[in-house]
Simulated assay, not measured.
Amino acid sequence: MAMDTRDTPLLQTEPIAIPQTKQQAKQAAKDIAFGSIAGVAGKFVEYPFDTVKVRLQSQPDHLPLRYTGPLDCFRQSLRRDGFFGLYRGISAPLFGAALETSSLFFSYRIAQDILQATLLPSTEPLPLTALIGCGAMSGAFTSLLLTPIELIKCKMQVPLEAHSSHPRPRPLTLIASIYRHHGLIGFWHGQMGTLIREMGGSAAWFGGYESVTAAFKSMRQQGQATMEDDASLPIYQQMFAGAIAGMSYNFLFYPADTIKSRMQTEEVGNLVGRERRTFLFVGRALWAQHGLKGMYRGCGITCLRSAPSSALIFSIYEGLKKAFP
């Protein structure tokens, strides 16, 4: 997927460098636009499942648990809030999905271009290990943009207690409350969990997609010797590769996301005047009380929703690239 615009000699003149810069800027704009569209479409598919996941992850430490599993959480949520209650707080995640997916594709391409320019000749493709590294760098960059959005999302998704007399807060109310109690840095509460999840998850996401795509292309080339390396795959193969990528992203680093959700669903004012609980502290407490099972609570439904969502994201992104070269 690396962009190859360096077919000119190494000693380039200024008139040649200008068109390259314009081409790179044009490609960056496409990455942002196509990634945003794909991310928003994928979010509509996955959001109800994500709401259930967050509610499962953020259950209180004491037993008995509020939900016995994903299906029970679905039933209780539908009974209490109705179907559209599963989409509560989607406005911030839609913006977040556009921002996340566009920044992932954009920074993934930039990382590839940097490695291509510094490590390998322009005509030699990057190996899979380098692409996995590019995915990790892309995830690290994206995590900084994503944490504040996920903080608001998680607080919106958690249901109110039955005895609560307070109205459900709106996103702007939550933003004002977080800033008032914790300042600007408060919006990055849970950043360590997002960083681990995004770095590892994005490496697995792009690595999974690239490896499955390469396997399909290799199979096609064995029976079609004239096939070009950059020829696009059939839609069902793109979607299968995207589905594998989505499940890899979520499963491998799911405990980091569980800890992050626990941190981000705390009441905003609970820790005023005291030191906020760290990623390591929350992780140790969760492990001591629920073990490995608690770390992976809600993982099944997360992987289930990530398969169609990720398949849709990659197929839309690749389709837009093909339609608007």
Rank of each mutant, 00 (worst) to 15 (best):
L94F: 05
F187P: 08
G135N: 14
I37L: 05
P308S: 13
D257T: 04
A323T: 04
H163D: 15
E198C: 14
M192T: 14
D7F: 11
I152A: 10
G269Q: 03
D81P: 00
I114D: 11
P19L: 15
L56M: 15
M295H: 00
S310I: 04
M227V: 13
H189C: 02
Y296V: 06
T123I: 00
S103R: 09
S261P: 00
S91M: 05
K322W: 09
T68K: 07
D229N: 05
A225I: 02
E267W: 01
F34Y: 15
V268R: 01
T118N: 13
L146A: 09
A130L: 13
M227C: 01
S58N: 08
Q222G: 06
D7L: 10
K22Y: 11
R297S: 09
Y47W: 08
K26H: 14
P167L: 06
Q27T: 14
R277N: 00
H163N: 11
S58V: 13
Y254G: 02
L292I: 02
L63D: 15
H181F: 01
Q23T: 12
I132V: 13
L145K: 03
H62K: 15
V272N: 06
R284I: 02
G85V: 10
V54N: 04
V282Q: 00
W188A: 11
V272E: 14
L120H: 11
I18M: 04
A323N: 07
R55L: 11
E161Y: 10
Q20W: 01
G208F: 01
H189N: 06
F253Q: 07
S143W: 01
E267M: 07
L280Y: 00
E198K: 12
E266F: 03
A323W: 03
T5D: 04
L280S: 00
V272C: 06
R276Y: 00
S232H: 12
S164P: 02
T5A: 06
G133R: 08
R180D: 11
T194W: 01
R88C: 07
V268N: 01
L10V: 15
K53H: 11
R170C: 00
E198I: 05
K293Q: 06
Y296H: 06
